[in-house]
Amino acid sequence: MKALIERIEPLIWVLFGAGFMVGSLLLPAWVFTFGIAQPLGWVPDGALAFERAHALAANPLGKLLLLALIALPIWNAANHLRHFSIDLGGYERDGAVAPLLYAGALVLSVVAIVAVIGL
């Protein structure tokens, strides 16, 4: 398991880096638009009505964007938590922590892929 993780470490780093960008730039904009601006009525009436929003999300590009928004920050979190655990003296337990976190990220990514495809 350890050897496998070591082999794919660069790939995890790419997902982590991408997740960091998405999580710090796109995700806040997303949360602001749908979580704050829309409920407070700052968005013109109907601009984010269900049909329009759904059409946007169901478009192949929209699906890709949604997937990136959901899945990449999960990898960012998994990798950060793993290194956090090591920094707190968890080098010994990393053999269990890393597979657990990455497996979790993988499962959630698959769930996200299935959900996004089904839109």
Binding site: E6, E9, P10, I12, W13, H83, F84, I86, D87
Partner: peptide, 13 residues
Amino acid sequence: MLEEGGVFACSYA
């Protein structure tokens, strides 16, 4: 750099 303990062991502190 790619081995165990190489660059990817860094935790971005």
